[in-house]
């Protein structure tokens, strides 16, 4: 029996039976949900071979939940793809596999074999190279190998400045490149889904959601998330003001560093050596959401990759990062 099986099986059963929502949906969330469902159905109806990028985090949880609703009572009409770097939190991987088991999803996992062979890792190679090889390049490999013509991503426009201008249906050329100056105008809810062979579209059904919306929706819909989002005693070390979790024994401790147990949680989930924890007492989703409301630090600052340089996200996106 896989880890988290009880939680995930109960969730799967609820999704199959056509919901047992207890909370009324606020008007603004209902509107966002309907828009996302519309977007997902457009993809299913227009593309030959779509895929959903599933990155295990809370945004992916919401995106996946919306997809289950969009096609109900049909099963998901596309597979899920996880681009693994081999440096994700152990619990994330357990969660991913437990979820796929509970629902019977067609889950594809891809790791960049060249990167593995070269021994790329976030500690020795640095975050920029690690991200480039194990995420950006790995994603391209997986999309090419499977000839996916549309890929759902869970990015939101409120996350980061360069995202604010990205279309919901965002065109990628044969090399997965994004040209911010040459985007297709997007009017009404009419999405242009036409592409040539080898080209693709990245689709962002959560474009108009804010971080707060994500938390509220998780609550209203009672969607389970990886427990790493909730505060618990965890072994951490502090480096340059960032709390890093010692998730496994690959973590190279510096001289004089000893992991301490502190009550922490994560605002975003990625590769554990690149994801800062925050001290918190919030051990339920509602408590996290309320803490978030009072928060004074924006989400991406917990992600070390963005600090490398101003405008770094735009650079990565042009190269094909999600």
């Amino acid at each position: 029996m896989s880890a988290f099986a009880d939680t995930l099986n109960a969730y799967a059963a609820r999704a199959r039976d056509g919901g047992t929502r207890v909370q009324a949906m606020p008007a603004d969330l209902a509107a966002l949900e309907a828009e996302s469902l519309h977007i997902m159905r457009e993809v299913a109806a227009n593309f030959a071979n779509p895929v959903m990028l599933y990155s295990i985090g809370k945004d992916s949880a919401v995106m996946l939940h919306l997809a289950l609703k969009a096609f109900y009572p049909s099963p998901l009409p596309f597979p899920l793809l996880h681009v693994d770097t081999t440096w994700k939190f152990t619990d994330m991987i357990k969660w991913r596999d437990g979820l796929a088991d509970a629902f019977g999803f067609d889950l594809r996992v891809h790791v960049n074999p060249d990167g593995l062979a070269r021994g790329i890792n976030p500690f020795a190679s640095g975050s920029a190279l690690h991200t480039q090889v194990m995420k950006t390049e790995a994603l391209r490999q997986a999309l090419d190998a499977n000839r996916f013509d549309a890929a759902f991503g869970g990015a939101r426009r409120d996350e980061e400045k360069s995202r604010a201008k990205e279309r919901i249906f965002s065109f990628r050329d044969r090399h997965h490149g994004w040209d911010p100056r040459n985007q297709r105008p997007e009017l009404w809810s009419l999405y242009n889904t036409r592409i040539h062979k080898g080209e693709s579209i990245r689709v962002f059904p959560l474009s108009n959601w804010t971080e707060l919306d994500i938390w509220r929706y998780l609550l209203v819909e009672d969607i389970p998330v990886v427990p790493l989002y909730l505060a618990a005693p965890r072994p951490v070390v502090e480096r340059d003001g960032t709390l890093l979790m010692v998730d496994d024994n690959r973590f190279p401790l510096h001289d004089g560093e000893t992991p301490q147990t502190r009550k922490v949680r994560f605002r975003t989930l990625g590769c554990y050596p690149l994801t800062g924890a925050i001290e918190s007492e919030a051990d339920t989703i509602e408590a996290v959401a309320l803490e978030m409301l009072a928060a004074r630090t924006s989400e991406r600052s917990g992600r070390l990759i963005d600090k490398d340089e101003q405008g770094s996200m735009e650079k990565k996106k042009r190269e094909g990062y999600f």
Binding site: R157, K161, A164, K165, T210
Partner: peptide
């Protein structure tokens, strides 16, 4: 400066496209 999302625009000091913002 909160709004000018893309590098090219920041350098030229102009906005070149449609961007979406959220507040409540």
């Amino acid at each position: 400066l909160l709004l000018d999302g893309l590098e090219a625009e920041r350098e030229q000091g102009i906005t070149i496209d449609v961007a979406y913002r959220y507040f409540a």
